[in-house]
């Protein structure tokens, strides 16, 4: 079996040589000529590509419209990282600009590695989560021009976060998306690493610019995340039970870019950044489950946020506009 040399690609630079060798065996190398389609908008995904050489143009067909180039992906970058999501369809078409060489990792092959708790898969999950987190951060930062005075108002409230939960949340954990792949022992282990808090309606859980590197998993209730600038407030997401927030800051160590406010009484688990080391233990099944849940949530969030920002951009096009209230 041939082994694809991935050592030149920055995505794999943290992998040890033996793990890189394993990954090199589960990917295949594809070559494309100028104008070739790497993947087409709307087709079932199921893979992620690592561009080894060349340049790829990303063309999106807006509803009711022709294709528009929205980005260029160069050698050393990751292409179609949402392609590992279940039932995901490509949101855009990737076209080779000149000769392109890419390593293609199929979702099924990554899942097989994960199913065997192979250390390489834990490293890959973490790197993928970080790649999606960086993309999410960049997408959020690039949306500041979409903030307008006629956007949503900040939710007001005066309450503070208090430790503890007002109900026995343990029986509900298996129902929450974040814990979908967790077994009972892993859930228990994860909860032991966390602190439980409850925030009243309107409570600001974190503000923009705060150096809060905790990760939060919502158990009950919902939060609004919003981009706050001098121009106004832009709601970036509404997150309910089983969804996480603060992943970008927990993973990358950045300051919070968005404000998070409780929309109703909200109970959540809070995970300290000190647990980053504990949760990168290849001997612990929890580490795999955790990163699978984290990656899935990040992908859903990036997918939704990209669609929403594209929608708001389109609202500025001729024929559509935002409500002038």
């Amino acid at each position: 079996m041939s082994v694809v040399d991935l050592s030149s690609h920055p995505f794999f630079r943290t992998l040890r040589a033996d793990l890189l060798n394993v990954v090199g065996r589960i990917v295949r190398e594809d070559e494309f000529a100028d104008g070739d389609i790497l993947f087409r908008q709307g087709e079932a995904a199921g893979s992620v590509l690592f561009v080894l050489e060349g340049s790829v143009s990303i063309v999106a067909r807006l509803p009711g419209g022709d294709g528009v180039e929205i980005a260029q992906v160069e050698a050393g970058e990751v292409l179609g990282e949402l392609g590992l999501m279940a039932d995901h369809r490509r949101a855009a078409t990737a076209v080779a600009r000149g000769p392109v060489r890419a390593a293609v990792m199929e979702s099924a092959d990554l899942s097989a590695l994960c199913a065997h708790y192979h250390p390489a898969s834990l490293q890959l999950l973490r790197e993928l989560a970080m790649a999606v987190a960086r993309r999410l951060r960049d997408t959020t930062e690039s949306a500041s021009h979409l903030v307008t005075a006629d956007g949503c108002r900040a939710i007001s409230g005066t309450g503070i976060i208090a430790p503890g939960a007002p109900y026995d949340f343990q029986p509900f954990l298996p129902l929450l998306g974040f814990f979908r792949d967790f077994g009972p022992a892993e859930r228990e282990e994860f909860v032991a690493l966390c602190t439980v808090f409850t925030a009243p309606r309107g409570c600001r859980i974190r503000g923009p610019g705060e150096a809060d590197h905790h990760l939060y998993v919502i158990l009950r209730g919902a939060v609004q995340t919003s981009l706050v600038t001098d121009a106004g407030t832009l709601r970036t997401a509404v997150l309910g039970p089983g969804r996480a927030f603060g992943e970008v800051n927990w993973l990358l160590g950045d300051a919070a870019a968005v404000q998070v406010t409780a929309m109703s009484q909200c109970t959540f688990l809070r995970l300290s950044p000190d647990c980053r080391v504990t949760l990168m233990d290849p001997a612990s099944r929890l580490s795999f489950r955790f990163y699978q849940g984290l990656l899935r949530g990040l992908q859903v969030k990036l997918d939704a946020q990209s669609r929403e920002f594209a929608r708001r951009e389109q609202m500025g096009m001729s024929g559509t506009h935002r409500w002038q209230s």
Binding site: Q41, G42, R61, P63, G64, R89, R90, A91, A92, D150, G151, C152, R153, I155, R235, V238, A304, R307, E308, A310, R311, Q314, M315, G319, T320, H321, R322, W323, S325
Partner: peptide, 30 residues
């Protein structure tokens, strides 16, 4: 679903007018 756009949570959406005068308008609900 790639030709479809999800209406965001807590949003009102309206389409009115006909032909080239058609307008789509959205508003956040607070």
């Amino acid at each position: 679903t790639t030709g479809w756009v999800e209406v965001p949570e807590y949003t009102a959406l309206s389409v009115s007018g006909a032909g080239s005068d058609r307008r789509i308008v959205s508003a956040d609900i607070d």
